[in-house]
Amino acid sequence: MIFADEIYDKVLYDGNTHTSVASLADDVLFVTFNGLSKNYRTCGYRAGWLVISGEKRHAKDYIEGLNMLASMRLCANVPGQLAIQTALGGYQSIDDLVAPTGRLCKQRDLAYKMLSEIPGVSCVKPKAGLYLFPRLDPKIYPIEDDQQFILDLLLEERVLLVQGTGFNWHAPDHFRVVFLPNVDDLTEAMTRIARFLENYRKQHSTISLVSNTSSKELAHKDKKQNVQA
């Protein structure tokens, strides 16, 4: 069976559209997850849902298990449920935020640009969602423990991020950035991250490597952007 977590299905940039995997077949069992937290900026309402679709005949017992667990917790928070009908049917204000002139899109563009300008940092431009997941070239940033790295960033620059291994990534060479702050705060945060990484390069004497690899790094980035387009 396929579990599809589609909680960001309206947070789409550059005119992209979202396809629900469950819309593409009727002979496989799907459980699709969605909710109000991100599309309607109401994380605190705790309103989400799952939808069972596709081939269900062989899954009666599993579905009964789901229903049992739902019954055991009686019901979901009712004030949160009250928001669902209006949210889904009403004006979709998320569309304004993700439009090229919208706040979320502008912040994504800024964070992407500023991160990509840091030597040894490369990043796939997000098509959707609220996050960037940049890569730190291990030749320039020989990080062994990325939680320590993120802690050092916090202590030195007072910016809090989450390390890549926190997302079960297998190597200590990524981190996640949330691009929710307004343009001014985001600029400040990116400046601090850039300064921290500059100090890191100085301490690890990898500055010279940067100039050696910068052209290669750029070629690498170009390749990725082609894949993106």
Binding site: F3, D5, I7, V31, F33, N34, G35, S37, C43, R46, A47, G48, W49, L50, V51, I52, S53, K56, L66, N67, L69, A70, R73, C75, A76, N77, G80, Q81, I84
Partner: peptide, 16 residues
């Protein structure tokens, strides 16, 4: 009947 509302997706991920 194919829809279950939860306290966020988080609760439903754990339940599923």
């Amino acid at each position: 009947d194919d829809i279950i509302i939860g306290n966020g997706v988080s609760e439903l991920i754990v339940m599923s």
